[in-house]
Simulated scan of single mutants.
Amino acid sequence: MATQVSPPKAGLRETKKQETRQLISDHATRLFIAQGFEQTTIAEIATAARVAKKTVTNYFPRKEDLALDHQDQFATSLARAVDARRPGESALAALRRAFADSVAAQDPVAGFSGPEFARMITDSPTLSTCVRGLHDQRAHHLARALAEATGADPDDI
C-alpha cells in the first residue's frame, strides 16, 4: 500500500514572513481603496501595518507591487492553462476550462476583485499603465506557450 506524503509545512519563520507580507498587503489595499493609490504613502501603509517603512519596501520593492501583488500569477495564468492541459485537450478548451474555473472561484487574480478594487485601478494612471503592461506580458507568455504546443516558431505571429 502506498503511503501519501504531505508536503513539508512551512517553518515558523516562513509562516511569520507570509503573515507579515499579507498584513502589509491588506492594509495597503484598504488605504489605496479609501484614499487612492497616488495619495497613499508607504509611510502610511507602514504605520497602519505597524511595521517599519523599510519592512514594507523589503516585501514590496515598488509601490505598484503593493496593489498588484499577484503580478506573476496573472501574467503566466493563460500560459499555465495551456501547458497543463489534459491529454488530448486543445489549447482553446484548456483556456475555456481555466476561465470557467476562475469564474466559479471568483478568483481575484483573474480579475474578480470587486468594484472597489477595480475603481482603484481605473482611478490611478500609474496602476492602469501597470495593468496594461501585465496584459502585454500575459499575451507574450500565452503566445510562447501556444508556439510550443503547436511546434511553431516562437516568432511566428
Score class of each variant (00 low, 15 high):
Ala147Arg: 04
His27Pro: 00
Ala10Tyr: 02
Asp155Ser: 14
Thr57His: 12
Gly11Trp: 03
Asp69Arg: 12
Leu68Arg: 09
Gln106Pro: 05
Leu146Asp: 05
Cys130Pro: 00
Lys63Ile: 01
Gln106Met: 10
Pro125Ser: 10
His135Glu: 04
Ser6Trp: 12
Asp101Tyr: 02
Ala79Asp: 14
Glu38Ala: 14
Gly88Ala: 09
Ala94Phe: 06
Glu38Gly: 12
Leu12Ala: 15
Ala100Cys: 03
Gly88Pro: 00
Pro115Ala: 14
Thr41Arg: 08
Val56Asp: 08
Thr15Leu: 14
Glu116Lys: 11
Ala75Ser: 14
Leu68Trp: 06
Pro108Ile: 01
Gln39Phe: 01
Ile33Ala: 03
Ala149Cys: 05
Glu89Thr: 02
Gln73Lys: 10
Ala145Tyr: 09
Thr40Asp: 04
Thr29Ala: 13
Gly133Ala: 06
Ile157Arg: 05
Glu116Asn: 08
Cys130Ser: 11
Val109Gly: 00
Leu31Thr: 04
Arg80Pro: 02
His141Asp: 01
Asp65Pro: 06
Arg119Asn: 08
Glu44Thr: 07
Asp155Ile: 05
Ala152Cys: 04
Pro115Val: 10
Gln73Cys: 01
Pro154Glu: 01
Ala147Leu: 03
Ala46Cys: 05
Ser124Phe: 15
Phe117Asp: 04
Ile33Arg: 01
Asp65Gln: 13
Gln106Arg: 13
Thr3Met: 10
His140Glu: 14
Gln106Cys: 08
His140Leu: 11
Arg50Thr: 03
Arg13Leu: 09
Phe60Gln: 07
Glu19Ala: 15
Leu31Lys: 05
Ile45Ala: 00
Pro154Thr: 02
Gly36Met: 07
Asp65Phe: 13
Thr150Gly: 13
Ile45Pro: 07
